[in-house]
Design a protein around this nucleic acid. Sequence first.
RNA 1: GCGCGGUUAGCUCAGUGGUAGAGCACUACCUUGACACGGUAGGGGUCAGAGGUUCGAACCCUCUAUCGCGCACCA
Length: 880
Amino acid sequence: MPELPKTYDPRTVEPKWYARWIDNRDFEANPKLSKPAFSIVMPPPNITGVLTLGHVLNNAIQDILARRARMQGFEVLWLPGMDHAGIGTQTAVEKFLLRTEKKTRHDLGREEFLRRVLDWQEKHGGIIIEQLKRLGCSCDWSRERYTLDDNYIRAVQKAFVDLYNNGLIYRGRRMINWDPAAQTALSDEEVINKPQKGNLYYVRYEIVEEPGRFLQVATTRPETIMADTAMAFHPNDKRYVDLFGKHAWRPLAREKLPIIADEAIDPEFGTGLLKVTPGHDKLDLEIGERHSLPALDVLTLDGRINCPAVPELNGLDRFEARKRAAELLQERGLLSKTELYANNVGFSERSEVPVEPRLSEQWFLRYPKTKEALAVVRDHLIRFFPAHWEKVYAQWLEKIQDWCISRQVWWGHRIPVWYAKCQSPSSKSQIHVGIDPPVDSENWTQDEDTLDTWFSSWLWAYETMDEETRKKFYPTSVLVTAPDIIFFWVARMIIAGLEFKPGKSERDEDNIPFRDVFFTGLIRDKQGRKMSKSLGNSPDPLELIGKYGADGLRFGLMRIAPSGQDIRFDEKQIEEGRNFATKLWNVARFRQMHGPSDAAPKVDNKKLSIFAVEVLARLNETIEAIEKAYSDYQFNAVAQELYDFVWSDYCDWFVEAAKTEIFSADETKKKSALAVMDLVLSAVVRLLHPFMPHITEELWSRLGFGKGSIQFVLPPGKIALGDGDLANKRRLVSEIYEAVQAGRNLRAEANVPSNKKIGFILRTHEKWFYNELLTIARLLNAEEVRLDRQYEAVAGVPVAVTPLGELFLAIAARDKTAERARLDKEIAKIEAEIRTVDSKLKSESFVERAPAVVVEEHRQRAKDFSAQLTKLKQARAALN
RNA sequence: GCGCGGUUAGCUCAGUGGUAGAGCACUACCUUGACACGGUAGGGGUCAGAGGUUCGAACCCUCUAUCGCGCACCA
């Protein structure tokens, strides 16, 4: 067996193993096997996206779950894929065209533009898949899917057609969110409200029937005055009652406006008068419908004024026009005042421009199965982790509105609807809704629009699977996703599952898309800002992999990823992941230096050193803690448990203590210590494998723990330490370790260099640790630890009171002042402890009402402390 | 306005009623026969504030402050 290199080099090890796993088709799921199923569908990244830290976090978690399940004997399907990302991809290509050719998509025409998108996809598509492979993701790449696969397209169309035939999808002219930059309708979820500083303009409207009398109306949008079709006040508002039925002059594009009364008006706001603009405001449209007012549209699709009647404004951009309109009114004496005003404005999530409420003919979905969707989460057929997202989910479903699913975008799933070219108004067949075009297609034109990208992704959990796969792997075991798409995707997938029933029965539990949902946190930068391209604060994960290895990145990130909390990213933490990998590597290397490992180490409980008992007991505790953490999706806790066990319990304590046996001439003892190391190392690499797949596979192979891959080996179970004396042995070890720490502290306080071997004297009547003196000496870096029951130290020789006895440094007396100060500090510490414990014990209510165990614990502590204090005081008195 | 989450060491964060923790950073010593991407020791916290429940509160309850998120309102 070749010796391990001195440092671990992930750059050669990681790609080597990944290639081997792929060659062996280790990640491919076989639905024919009888092993229990475990499945995850990957939230499909955008086809032209590149890997971000968010993806790393999300996919590392999925990989951990998939790899752990594989080890546990599940048949695992982790199904990867990509999303066509309608608006996103189209916008990227449009920007590119404008920059390189100074052309818009309209210049090219639909067909040519789509060809260009495909070129773009050819060039930039799928990069992220290669990056995920570099991360070590164990996806079944043979099943990679795309939301524009032929089958998938048909499935999306079928969903549309079925919903249409069930009366759930309809076409209607309604107020929608219009994105003037992308020039498409958006769903409510794609609009983000942001507080904005603006002005409240007080505009004067003259009363037609009473020339010279003016009404004041407060508005934030004077540029839409030309679309006013009424003035309105609250019917109980006495100020305006006499005006009911009269008219006001519209100040721009002068027209007579009826003055009406409507309950929707808030008399407290502004002047209590509302200019009713049904074409540009949702509330106004409702008022307009109640009073049969016309809805005028004075904006173009790209957000300019379309009103030839006011040439000063016509053609101006909406924000330009707002200023100009205010000036015009000012010039005409119709603007009485302007106030600074903060209100919320809806922005397009994608284009980051304010959306325009707009009356438009679009396709809508009346959500089905909303009650059932609420129930499956409320009744925990689907469990959310962390659970508080259940409430957010429920609130969304309770207030749900119809979903505007059509987009004026070319890249995507074309709406499967055709309109007859020559319509005979009475004919019912002027619309054709179907997966296939009408037979006489030359007489029909297909709807120009495409479907909201989420209308395709909501089928992702099962339309990515064929019949056989679905039978085995649907519903999926768990979905791992970021909470910002809980409405966009998670909720809609649940609805789709319940509505389309892809499961093996009609029952909800067979049709829900997943059983658990784990919501990750969002990764922020060190200042707490969201990572974004424009801020440039998002590190390139590939660069991090280059510096720290994929395993280092994964482990470092997982250790700081608290469940459901946002994560503040700091590269230091990835460095720690890398350092941990190196630590593991080196402690394995240490084992390997002492001969070949035993794949099936046998340990005899009776022959184990007490230090071995301790480390194995800690391993058992760690295994238990890890299992609990996994069941709650507490990945950071799993990582932390492993980190602490490996670094502290195993490396710092056990390996150091075991060196006594490893370097001893006693072959039996040496073998026993090496067997314990094999036991621990073999367990540790298996426990770590889901987090750090490459290095653990390398060590598994190098140390020869098994012939095959570590991927399919059962995780370690707890080791039987059925020794009735276990607790006692563990107590002895902790007393030894405590004494060692006290002794090391003595050395340091006395300025003895770390590498200098020095003598210790232990004054004690205890005998039980005689056999461990060599180990104690090694841990203290002592040349010897001499036992002396009667030892009388010269005043000023440093001493520590330990559970084993009083431990003296075998050096000449120190400067008495320094030693006094040191002891005084120790005494003060102990006295403080005693005060705390005593005050509790003196309290009658504590002694009476606290559990007996707790009281007894406190009594024991008080006893120990005062014994320690007595000895410290004696040492202190000797210095006087 | 409603709802959710956070506030613990200089920093990033663990900690579900009984002795306040880790890593980083800092200080000192150390290249000791796995590891300087390392070892040993040390300093550093009235657990945001106030009140309550309890024998006992970082932890449970109420209120306040503050930061973040979601929803609603938005003339």
